[in-house]
Structure formats: C-alpha cells, structure tokens
Simulated assay, not measured.
Amino acid sequence: MAASESPPPHPPKREVFDVRAMINTDNKGFVRPVETYTETGFGLYMSRTADHPRFHRLESWLLPGLGLRVSIFHLVAGHHTGQRLYLDVGEFSGPDTHGCWHAEDWYLDLIDVPGRPLELVDVDELFEAHHAGLLTADASVRAVGIATRTLVGAAEHGHDVAAWLASAGAPLTWESGR
C-alpha cells in the first residue's frame, strides 16, 4: 500500500448487550461481564470494567429513539483528555425476544468536552464506508441527520449535552455520579 493510501474501511461495528446473561459482546466477538444493566423507557444503561490500556471502566447508555450511544470512559492515568461524554451515532434497538439489545455504529462520533461545542469526528470514515458499500445511502443520511440534530440540540442548551438529552426525553444518570 502506498504511503498516501489509507487502509480499507471497516464494516460497521456491531455489539450485543445480553441483559439476561449480564454480558456484552463487542464487534470482535469478545465477551465481557457486565456489572449493571438498567432498562428504561428511553434506553439501556450498562456499566462494566474494561481491559483496555486507556480506560478501566465503561458506562454507556443506548438511546434508540435518538440514534445515540452515550458513554463515559473512565481513563487511566496519563490518558485524560478533558472529555466528559463520547457519543456514537448509529442504530440501537432492544430488547429482542431473548432480552438482548443491539448496536450498530455508523462511524460518526461526537466528543463532549466541558466549555466547548461538541466536536464531530470520523466524517471521513462515514464517507469511505458508504463509498465501499458498507453503509447504505439511507443509513449514511440518517447518521448525518442524527449528528446534526445532536450538535444543534447541545448548542441550543449552552453546549450542555446532558441538558439537551433530558429535554429530548432521556434524562441520563450514571453510577459514577457524573
């Protein structure tokens, strides 16, 4: 591969959140135990430990009605970035007949750092995935719409993502108290 070429895009990341079995299966097939699942009328909350070099705990909310996964990564020393929330854009659903929730990440991410507007990242990945046939035009357009609605909503609430989410019917609570 020439230096100017980028690697081929990866397929959308898919995860399964098995509430009954108290496990989370990531897009690579790794199964991790979950300490807490909480199902609400607006989504699914998960808290678990993480075996990642940059973070030791993960808290996430799947919000099907908003097309978002909102996460707090509890970073290890030396990896703190000032980031409060990390928002994945995609399709989230559940529970199915087996009590499982499903996530399909549509590449676009939003990073919430207090005192700043949300930062939209990975737009290039969305376009590359669509061009490679990994994401339909409909899903790509929906992803852009979700990201746009989130950017505007947070801006209208003084760049306070939590306040916008609460006004949109998703008042998030976190075990860590954030």
Rank of each mutant, 00 (worst) to 15 (best):
R69P: 03
W101H: 07
I23V: 15
E39Y: 04
F92Y: 15
E119N: 06
R69M: 08
L75C: 08
F73N: 07
D96M: 10
D88P: 02
Y86A: 05
L68I: 11
T36A: 08
E15R: 11
D88V: 01
G82P: 05
V31Y: 05
V16E: 12
R32Y: 07
H102D: 03
E35I: 09
V113R: 12
D18V: 00
F42P: 06
E59M: 06
F42T: 13
W61E: 00
G82Y: 11
L85D: 09
D26V: 04
D112W: 08
G99A: 03
S47W: 13
N24C: 14
H102W: 11
H52A: 07
H98E: 14
L58M: 15
S71W: 04
M46C: 12
A103S: 15
F30Y: 12
E104R: 14
L118K: 07
L62F: 04
L62D: 00
F55H: 13
P33V: 07
G90F: 00
H56E: 14
T81H: 09
R84A: 11
R69W: 04
A77F: 05
W61T: 01
T49D: 13
F17E: 02
N27A: 10
T81Q: 14
Y107D: 00
M22S: 14
L58P: 06
L63G: 01
Q83A: 12
A103W: 01
E15I: 01
P33H: 07
R48F: 10
P64L: 02
V89G: 00
P53D: 14
V70W: 01
H102V: 04
F42V: 10
P64E: 00
E119S: 13
I111C: 04
